[in-house]
């Protein structure tokens, strides 16, 4: 038996898809019994969603107004108190998990394995380093809790035909007040979420301006695709930070990825290496993006993109 405590990511109302992908990873541990922990102001709705996930044996809930916003300093002591008896404590490698899980690991006195891309044994995992230029096999020390984050792009979400029992628990710990949520500014969009969309269209520095991104949005809307961007395009202020794809942005695995005017720096490529089909449109035939593209087109994007959008009618 190997007990896994998996920390659910959610926005207070809905479970984030990163959770179902992390369950898929946890279920790969031999003999794993996966418990999902939902920490929320009111955990009921999210817990009901989590209980439907296949491979989940139990859902634990902590409802506390202090958990309204996911503050690592507030959540970590509750997780540590509830981690007793678990062999593994997992979270997704999203900004939520990246912020939270190392705090949990340190409080438990262990190191953390970041970005698990495959489970090789009870304590053996593979993870990417050097922006994905190398894959390292690591052994976690036996006899200690394994704390890890899951590289969600490496996993497909488990199904949702389950009805796992839900149990309210009380961590019984005092929570710090030294960290306070102020606000969240989110780019409201009706487009598919970048991290879960089956198709993604991304624009790079070659777009040249915020206004020029309109042709990317038009193509994306025609394909019902999410929209991403290279670091260069975000740095230049063409689009907001939450659209960045790559080593330090979002790691995604859509079925179809269109890289428009993106040169293909290694830091970008690591964010898309699990994409099904990569299409590149770039004026520069020497651009490194063509080394990884399944379909490449050397063309001026300002001609090719509107033409492609029209051709998809």
């Amino acid at each position: 038996m190997a007990n896994v405590l998996l920390i659910a990511e959610h926005d207070g109302t809905n479970l984030n898809p990163s959770t179902a992908k992390s369950v898929a990873c946890a279920a790969n541990i031999e003999g794993a019994e996966v418990h999902v922990l939902v920490l929320a102001a009111d955990a009921a709705g999210v817990a009901a969603e989590a209980s439907r996930l296949d491979s989940v044996a139990k859902v634990l809930t902590v409802s506390n107004p202090a958990n309204e916003n996911a503050l690592a300093a507030v959540l970590a002591p509750q997780i540590v108190a509830l981690a007793d008896g678990y062999d593994y404590v997992f979270g997704p490698s999203t900004t939520f998990g990246k912020d939270l899980m190392p705090r949990v690991a340190a409080m438990l006195g262990v190191n953390q394995i970041s970005d698990i891309m495959s489970v090789e044994g009870s304590h053996t995992f593979k993870r990417p380093v050097y922006a994905g230029n190398a894959i390292v096999t690591v052994n976690a020390p036996e006899g200690h809790t394994v704390v890890a984050t899951v590289r969600t792009a490496s996993y497909r979400a488990v199904g949702s035909d389950n009805a796992a029992p839900v149990e309210a628990v009380d961590p019984g710990v005092e929570l710090p007040t030294h960290t306070r949520f102020v606000e969240l500014q989110t780019g409201q969009s009706d487009r598919p979420d970048l991290q879960t969309a089956a198709r993604v269209v991304s624009g790079g520095r070659a777009l040249g301006s915020s206004e020029s991104f309109d042709i990317i949005y038009a193509l994306a809307d025609k394909l019902a695709a999410g929209v991403g961007a290279s670091r260069a395009a975000v740095d230049a202020g063409y689009v907001p930070n939450d659209m960045q794809v790559g080593q330090t942005g979002k790691i995604i695995a859509p079925d179809l990825y269109l890289a428009i005017g993106i040169s293909g720096a290694i830091q970008h490529l690591t964010g898309i290496k699990d994409a099904g089909t990569i299409v590149a449109i770039n004026k520069d035939e020497e651009a490194p993006i063509f080394e990884v593209a399944d379909i490449g087109l050397v063309a001026d994007l300002f001609d090719a993109v509107p033409e492609l959008t029209e051709a998809l009618d």
């Binding site: 503050l71 999203t94 306070r180 102020v182 969240l184 500014q185 989110t186 939450d242």
Partner: peptide
């Protein structure tokens, strides 16, 4: 007062 780059956008928190 720190603004943080998170998956959902920009989150601002205040820390002592």
């Amino acid at each position: 007062r720190v603004t943080r780059e998170v998956d959902a956008g920009l989150e601002t928190i205040e820390v002592d």
